[in-house]
Amino acid sequence: MFTPAKLIRLFVTLGVFALLILLIKPFTGDGNLIDSYPAKPIKFIVPFKPGGGSDRIARVLDKFTEAEFGSAFVFVYKPGGGGHLGLRFLANSKPDGYLLATYNTPDLVLGHMTGIANYNVDDLSILGQVAFDPNVFSTSLDSPFNSMKEFLDEARKQPGKLRLGISQPKGGNHLATLAMLEEQKIDVSVVIFSGGTEMASAVLGKQVDAGIGGLAPFLGSMEQTKFLAVSGANRMSKIPNVPTMTEQGIPMNSGTGRVFLAPAGLETFQVERLKQGLENIFNNEAFQEELRKIGNAPAWMSGDEVTAYLKDFEVKAQQVLEKTGL
């Protein structure tokens, strides 16, 4: 067992380690001056695992941050709770202007409505949106369906017999799909996946008859995928021949907005600097071109516009949540 001498030695050694860590912790100036902000690299939270859609967009943005802000971001991955774990960390952090994050709409407000998130949205300040990616319905190339209308007609004939994959539980597309099925009075077997890539391999492997999620995970298998519909206001440039849901006579509009956030309570000059910087990067044609290449649809919205969009969404979503019991 532990003798006193051993315990003392243990604590002394641990103490030495603690001291060493304190010594190497860099001395940081405050840098909170209007002209010099940002004076040191900004830490950037990706609230998902590395290599996902949000990470790729942030990495594209990061190619331009050095030119705009003087140094590249330092990436921190904090996955969990569909991203809300990382956002909670941001919301509860000290607002010093050196910690930012990326996240998605409408999940930003949806998490609170479904009880997954546990922080105050007002503790976050939205800097802007750089892309809005409509959801797409997809199936494998040899599927008998050629459009979402055909799929839904067949589903109406055989209630519960067709499988529809959804890329993420309690996300925006889950809600929108349930609302659409409810409105069309259609019964399908819904299978929930944990992310766009997982659902993409299920769609290609015919584990489900169709699936709804982002376009990006299919970019490497376009020759093997049939897209049934775009669940957005407009068609997408990568798949110009695929009609929207509305064109097919089924009202549905859902998608993922890629937004950047800071904790609320930053100095006004800091928020202005960050918002302006983000907009400058967005207005660079090279940035938009790179986004398109990785399968995203560049679309600028200011922080206030995003907030207004989310307010509007919240009211509509509340009704759907009550109806579908999600």
């Binding site: 695992k49 590395p50 290599g51 996902g52 990470d55 790729r56 990495r59 594209v60 190619k63 890539t197 993409a200 391999s201 290609l204 995970p217 299919f218 970019l219 490497g220 298998s221 093997q224 290449k293 990785i294």
Partner: peptide
């Protein structure tokens, strides 16, 4: 083969490939 990363390591390497403009 399909652009679908099987684990997080592969996802990060895929991100690097895409950053070099390779799909």
């Amino acid at each position: 083969g399909l652009g679908i990363p099987g684990n997080v390591n592969a996802a990060v390497i895929m991100g690097a490939l895409m950053s070099f403009g390779i799909q």
